[in-house]
């Protein structure tokens, strides 16, 4: 563990908490893409199956459970509890165009052709594009509530911090994982436009 990864995980946890609070407090999921949340639930489910097969640390296991519970909890709030506030009309990104290429790519480019490894690789590829429906929705509505933009800033920062973690691990531990690094860079690049807007003028209330 290093400070970059710890800050990254905290940023990730913060993003998920901000989202849950936003939906719970405002009792509305307006401006939030349910499709992206579904993709995140698929990402964590496919990646954290090793929760039952390999124990790394209490921290690792607890965080995996928190991320799984929070992502399914968000889906419950969006599609069941506060279903009336879900903005179907603006959440229209075709997620099959994200899932299928990630399935194919994970079968073609992976470290090992085993079920757990393919699922992990699929989750890495899918996570890199999972935010697209949300960014697409923000661009369609032309604005985002301030709390939603803070959520996106924290979520985008988490993988950017992981890139620093990978640089650190390359030099300090002679460790690197090309698949995670390339997907992580793609994921962070997708936020660049949003980061620019967030930092220059806070995209809310545009």
């Amino acid at each position: 563990m290093n400070v970059f990864r710890l800050l990254g995980d905290i940023s990730h946890l913060l993003a998920i908490i901000i989202l849950l609070l936003k939906i719970w407090k405002t009792r509305s999921c307006a401006g939030i893409s349910g499709r992206s949340q579904v993709l995140f639930a698929v990402v964590y489910t496919a990646r954290y199956l090793d929760l039952f097969t390999s124990y790394i640390s209490a921290y690792n296991s607890i965080m995996k459970l928190v991320f799984l519970a929070a992502s399914y909890g968000t889906i419950y709030l969006m599609f069941i509890k506060f279903k009336a506030s879900y903005d179907h009309n603006h959440d229209t990104f075709r997620i099959e165009f994200l899932i299928l290429p990630c399935v194919l790519l994970s079968l073609l480019i992976n470290h090992e052709f085993s079920p757990l490894e393919i699922l992990w690789t699929f989750s890495i590829y899918l996570e890199s594009v999972a935010i697209l429906p949300q960014l697409f929705m923000v661009s369609k509505t032309g604005e985002a509530e301030s709390i939603t933009s803070h959520y996106l800033f924290a979520l985008g920062s988490y993988r950017a911090l992981y890139i620093l973690n990978w640089i650190y691990r390359y030099y300090a531990e002679s460790h690197y994982d090309v698949i995670a690094i390339v997907a992580g860079i793609v994921q962070t690049v997708l936020y660049c436009d949003f980061f620019y807007l967030y930092i220059t003028k806070g995209i809310y209330g545009q």
Partner: peptide, 10 residues
């Protein structure tokens, strides 16, 4: 030899 797997990460 550089190790490959990043499975200890979230």
């Amino acid at each position: 030899k550089r190790t490959k797997s990043a499975k200890d990460e979230l």
